[in-house]
Amino acid sequence: MTRIQKTVFILVALIALVVGLTVSKVLNSQRQLDPTQLLDAGIVVLPQSRTVPSLSLTDQDGEAVKLNELDGQWTLLFFGYTFCPDICPTTLAELRQLNGMLPDAVRDQLRIILVSVDPNRDTPEKLKEYLGYFNAGFQGLTGPLDDIQTLANGVGIPFIPGDTS
């Protein structure tokens, strides 16, 4: 493993750990979170949820999923792709591990979704096969690149579509 790969692995592991601990704390908290403590930990809690664009994407089973159906449950959107050689599988493995450490009641309130940023290659069948390797009940979404870009912009995730030629 090269030095860059080790650094990326450590960075992804730390991000996944922070996300997992934050989700656990938020879902288990019965009191108001102290914004100062969260900021000190590098976590920004928005005063209100973001409005998800009105779109319909296709899940790993080929079924249409309207994004407004994500209301009412914590949803962690992970933007990645199945041909990603290192960061995506490492992050999904970390998320699987963290998800498994959550109490059942908390785990039932959390949905983890891989949104493909490579829809030309990530068909529903490919997403289903790929997510099956993690055996964690994760959902995958794909669709037209313009819709994925709209979703990413709507939730504040910048990405530049890759050159797949």
Rank of each mutant, 00 (worst) to 15 (best):
I160D: 10
T7L: 12
P53M: 14
S165C: 03
E125V: 09
Q109K: 10
I4H: 06
P85S: 10
L17A: 15
L14N: 07
R31C: 08
D86F: 07
F134A: 01
V18L: 12
L110C: 08
F83A: 11
L33D: 12
A93Q: 08
N99K: 05
L70K: 00
I160Y: 08
I10T: 15
A136L: 02
R121G: 11
L17I: 08
T51R: 13
A16S: 10
S54A: 09
D108I: 05
E94Y: 06
N28Q: 14
L77P: 00
K6D: 13
A13H: 12
N28C: 13
I87G: 04
L92C: 04
L67M: 07
T150V: 09
D108M: 03
P35Q: 07
G156A: 02
V117G: 00
L14I: 03
T82N: 12
K6G: 06
L98Y: 12
Q30T: 10
A93H: 07
Q60G: 05
I112W: 07
R96N: 03
D163E: 10
Y81H: 14
Q30E: 10
Y81G: 11
Q60F: 09
C88G: 13
L17M: 15
Y130A: 01
T142S: 09
L127H: 07
D108C: 01
T90M: 05
K6N: 15
L17R: 15
V26M: 14
P161R: 04
F83P: 03
T82S: 12
P103H: 08
Q30L: 03
V115H: 04
V12A: 01
V8D: 04
V65I: 14
G162F: 13
M1N: 01
A64I: 10
V52I: 13
T82D: 13
F79V: 06
